[in-house]
Design a protein around this nucleic acid. Structure first.
Length: 502
RNA sequence: GUCCCGUUCGUCUAGCCAGGUUAGGACACCGGGUUUUCAUCCCGGCAACAGGGGUUCGAAUCCCCUACGGGACGCCA
């Protein structure tokens, strides 16, 4: 074990903060604490198209909410900063040049078109898609000359034969043939490094001793190991944790499950219960206790106790655990406190009031009207939901809305309004015909507070869940989309609305 | 398709590394009790070592094969 244990979590600020980030963060934190080390937060914003400041802020907020604390990070600083990759470009440039000079990497001038063709051909021949080394033969002089006038990427060289063996703390030795590994791009045309390069450079300069990350990274670990060797750096310890799964065992995804950390906050879960639950996914404390805090987890934490089968995220058990926290871990006055922090506060009520005021005669009208903004999932029956719409219309419309709403950014009244306008136009319906379905799916009643404002308050996570459960209800009653129907709808959607982004 | 990883009740898991347990606990479910209802709480029940070969006196535990599941194969991370 190295003198100082340093672990990190390195989320990329694209989209909503993910439960998986909190999951990985938890074990990284516990391991660092157990060994008296440090836990670092690093923002991996090398994807210029998709990274956003809002998303970065959201990561801080979400992680703070969970109670996970980091010793160094972009917001709190530290001795190994900056902790944002977009602020470390000189460093990557320097290391890329070193690799270039040593002949461990080379410039590639191939066009995306050529690469796509190549990939398609290889796929057709049932080969593993892989760069063919086209630009490998360029002389250093020619390469340097062309670089002055042409766009290029930098790729790392990969041995032509043999295999890479590295040790995973949890699985022992893992061997992968070099022939399976692509000549990975390490510098993009825009001059930014890719994850593979940036994470190795940063982990080295930040003194990361243990790389504890998701299983999805196993197959690219040889690239990382090779980069450490090329750069003549010490290779950190790797530990690949199992991935959280959907009930169908696929990797946890927002199409099938709530995965946004904010969903759990907004749906009324306690952060300590959520974290406790994540802590029991793939892990048990030596004494098998089921209620524990981050500190308690850290005290006895042992990587070797992690079980490798991918755990299925089970909302029912999380709810049970949350209930136990409410009635066993908190004093009643604390629960009142938490309720206020959640939604029972003047700030939230003030946002609702303008929507409800015209509809009030007495105070007692208020909560029944606003009820759906406080509940996890409103209830209604099938007939109320479908209303006057025919056959598979409701399911189609809900699905289209689900896809369209993924594009809603920023999530506000205006955006939401234009999305529904667009759906109405595209479907050649009047907004008036379209809306009842959504009023019911969202609020449980055909009439309710102004929908777009209400959705803005509800947030994307709760909204998505409600759309989805409406679809489930339709499906269970035989009014859902068949597999075939869904497929043709997807195609149809792509042609009329554009590509999905989820 | 190729490569890699995995596999104990429906779900989360203990046990495996250092072979000998009636394979334990929790969620869910079912039944009973307490409670003016409901919930909580208490008691009980259901339910698993993926399959096949070895090694061994003895295999959930060690080895091999098969099956199944998952992940990766981007100028995403």
């Amino acid at each position: 074990m190295p003198a100082t244990v340093r672990t990190r979590i390195a989320p990329s600020p694209t989209g909503a903060p993910h439960l998986g980030t909190a999951y990985m963060a938890l074990f990284n934190l516990a391991f660092a604490r157990k060994h008296g080390g440090q836990f670092i937060l690093r923002i991996e914003d090398t994807d210029r198209q998709r990274s956003s400041k809002e998303s970065e802020e959201a990561i801080f907020d979400a992680l703070h909410w969970t109670g996970i604390e980091w010793d160094e990070g972009p917001d709190c600083g530290g001795e190994h900063g900056p902790y944002r990759q977009s602020e470390r470009l000189d460093l990557y440039k320097q290391e890329i040049n070193r690799l270039l000079e040593k002949g461990h990497a080379y410039r590639c001038f191939c066009t995306p078109e050529r690469l796509n063709e190549l990939r398609a051909k290889q796929m057709a021949n049932k080969e593993t898609p892989r760069y063919d080394g086209h630009c490998l033969s360029l002389s250093p002089e020619e390469s340097a000359k062309r670089a002055k006038s042409e766009p290029f990427v930098v790729r790392m060289k990969i041995p032509e034969s043999g295999e890479c063996t590295f040790t995973d703390e949890l699985r022992g030795d893992v061997s992968i043939d070099w022939t399976q590994i692509d000549h990975q791009v390490i510098r993009k045309t825009d001059g930014f490094p890719t994850y593979h390069l940036a994470n190795v450079v940063d982990d080295h300069y930040m003194g990361i001793s243990h790389v504890i990350r998701g299983e999805e990274w196993i197959s690219s670990t040889p690239k990382h190991v090779l980069l450490y060797q090329y750069l003549e750096w010490e290779v950190p310890v790797f530990a690949h944790l199992p991935l959280l799964r959907n009930p169908d065992k696929s990797k946890l995804s927002k199409r099938k499950n709530p995965t946004g950390i904010f969903y759990f906050r907004d749906a009324g879960y306690l952060p300590e219960a959520l974290i406790n639950y994540l802590g029991m996914m793939g892990y048990t404390l030596p004494d098998q206790r089921e209620i524990f805090s981050i500190n308690e987890l850290s005290e006895s934490f042992d990587l070797k106790r992690i079980s490798l089968g991918g755990p299925i995220f089970d909302l029912a058990k999380l709810k049970w655990l949350n209930g136990r926290y409410l009635r066993e871990q908190l004093q009643p006055e604390e629960v009142v406190q938490r309720l206020q922090t959640w939604k029972a506060n003047p700030n939230f009520l003030e946002k609702i009031l303008p929507l409800a005021l015209q509809r009030l005669e007495t105070f007692s009208d208020f909560f029944p009207l606003a009820q759906f903004l406080f509940s996890d999932q409103p209830e209604y029956d099938l007939e109320t939901l479908t209303g006057k719409l025919q056959s598979d219309q409701p399911a189609k419309l809900l699905k289209i809305a689900e896809w369209e709403l993924e594009k809603a950014s920023p999530w506000n009244r205006h955006t939401l309004s234009s999305i529904f306008q667009k759906i109405a136009e595209t479907e050649e319906m009047k907004l008036k015909q379209l809306m009842p379905l959504f009023f019911v799916a969202m609020s449980g009643a055909p009439v309710s507070l102004p929908l777009f404002d209400a959705l803005a308050l509800l947030g994307p996570d709760l909204t998505r869940m409600r759309l989805r459960s409406a679809l489930t209800i339709l499906g269970e009653s035989g009014n859902g989309l068949s597999k075939k129907g869904l497929k043709s709808l997807e195609k149809d959607y792509a042609s009329r609305y554009g590509n999905r982004i989820d």
